[in-house]
Design a protein around this nucleic acid. Structure first.
Length: 275
DNA sequence: CCCGGAACCTGAAGGC
DNA sequence: TGCCTTCAGGTTCCGG
C-alpha cells in the first residue's frame, strides 16, 4: 500500500486533467474486464478527473463516468516517460501531452479493469488503516472472530485493506507479537500496540516513498527507501536490531514470515506449534 | 463462514 | 557451466 500511495501521489500532478490519446496493449492477459480491444477503444478520448487509491488498488476516475482500476500485485510498477525502454512493459498509456505511462510487470500477475463502478472490485475491502475512523476498537472488533494466526489475518484484505506481507511482519515485530498468535486471543493491550505499530510502519513507509526490495520503482524511476528501515522483513538469519537474536523465517499461508523469536516470544496464546 | 493450501506467472539467487 | 530448488511487494479458488 505505501507503494501504491506513492505512485498515486507522484503521478497525480502529471496525469490528472490529461486525456488518454491511445493505448498500446502489449499483454492482453492483464485486462480482466472488458475485452482488451474494448478497453483500448473506450479509454481513448477520456479525461482523467482524479487518481485515487483504495487498499492496494489504483483508480483513474474518468470523464465519461467510468473508472480504470489497476492492481500491481507482486511486481508491477507504473513509470512515467521512462528514459530507457522497460523490458517488462505490458501496457503503454499515451496521454494528450505526449507523455507515456508504462505499466511494467515482470511476473505478469497485475490486472486492469475498465468499469462503470469500482464497487465490484473493492466493495469487500476492509477499512483503510490510516483513515481517522479506523481506531483500536475497530481493529479489536475485526480481529476477535478469527482463530487464524494474526499474520494471516493482517494479510486478509477484507479485514483491513492495504497491509502487505513485509509491513505485516514489521508491524508484528514493532508490537512484540508472534506471527502465529491466534488473532482472537490478543489482549486489549496487544491490540493497542498492534494498532500503533500498523500506523507507524505504514506512515513511515509512505514517507520513505515505498520499499524497493524487488521490482518496485517510483513513477520517475527512482527507488523507495522504506526497506532500509526494515528490522525483520527479508532479514532471515541476521541479528535482531533490538536483542541480537537471529531472525527466523516461517511460512504462514504460503507467505514468508520473518520475526525475532526473542522479542516476539512465545506467549501462552501462541498455540500453534512450529519447528 | 472459517481455515489452509495451491494456483496464477516470471525471474533471480544459491546449492550441488 | 548447468540444473534444480527456493523465494519474491498478492489475490482467488478449491476443498475440508
Amino acid at each position: 500500500m505505501p507503494e501504491v500511495e506513492t505512485i498515486k501521489n507522484e503521478l497525480s500532478p502529471h496525469v490528472v486533467g490529461r486525456q488518454f490519446s491511445g493505448v498500446s496493449l502489449c499483454d492482453a492477459k492483464l485486462v480482466r474486464q472488458p475485452s482488451a480491444e474494448e478497453l483500448c477503444h473506450r479509454l481513448v478520448g477520456q479525461k482523467i478527473n482524479a487518481l485515487e487509491r483504495r487498499g492496494k488498488y489504483l483508480m483513474f476516475r474518468l470523464s465519461h463516468g467510468g473508472v480504470l482500476v489497476l492492481h500491481l500485485r507482486m511486481s508491477g510498477t507504473l513509470l512515467l516517460d521512462p528514459p530507457q525502454p522497460d523490458p517488462y512493459t505490458r501496457v503503454v498509456f499515451h496521454l494528450d501531452n505526449g507523455s507515456q505511462l508504462v505499466f511494467s510487470d515482470r511476473r505478469r500477475l497485475g490486472t486492469i479493469w475498465l468499469l462503470d463502478s469500482e464497487q465490484a472490485i473493492i466493495g469487500k475491502l476492509g477499512p483503510e488503516p490510516l483513515a481517522p475512523e479506523f481506531t483500536p476498537q475497530t481493529l479489536a472488533g475485526r480481529l476477535h472472530r478469527y482463530q487464524a494466526p494474526i499474520k494471516a489475518v493482517l494479510l486478509d484484505q477484507t479485514v483491513i485493506a492495504g497491509i502487505g506481507n513485509m509491513y505485516a511482519d514489521e508491524a508484528l515485530f514493532s508490537a512484540g507479537i508472534h506471527p502465529l498468535t491466534k488473532a482472537a486471543s490478543l489482549s486489549p493491550e496487544e491490540v493497542q500496540r498492534l494498532y500503533r505499530a500498523i500506523h507507524n510502519v505504514l506512515q513511515s513507509a509512505i514517507a520513505d516513498k515505498g520499499a524497493s526490495t524487488d521490482t518496485y520503482k517510483r513513477p520517475n524511476g527512482q527507488l523507495g527507501s522504506a526497506h532500509f528501515n526494515f528490522r525483520v522483513a527479508h532479514r532471515g538469519g541476521k541479528p535482531c536490531p533490538v536483542c541480537g537474536t537471529a531472525i527466523r523465517r516461517l511460512a504462514i499461508r504460503n507467505r514468508g514470515s520473518y520475526f525475532c523469536p526473542q522479542c516476539q516470544g512465545l506467549q501462552a496464546n501462541v498455540v500453534y506449534n512450529y519447528e
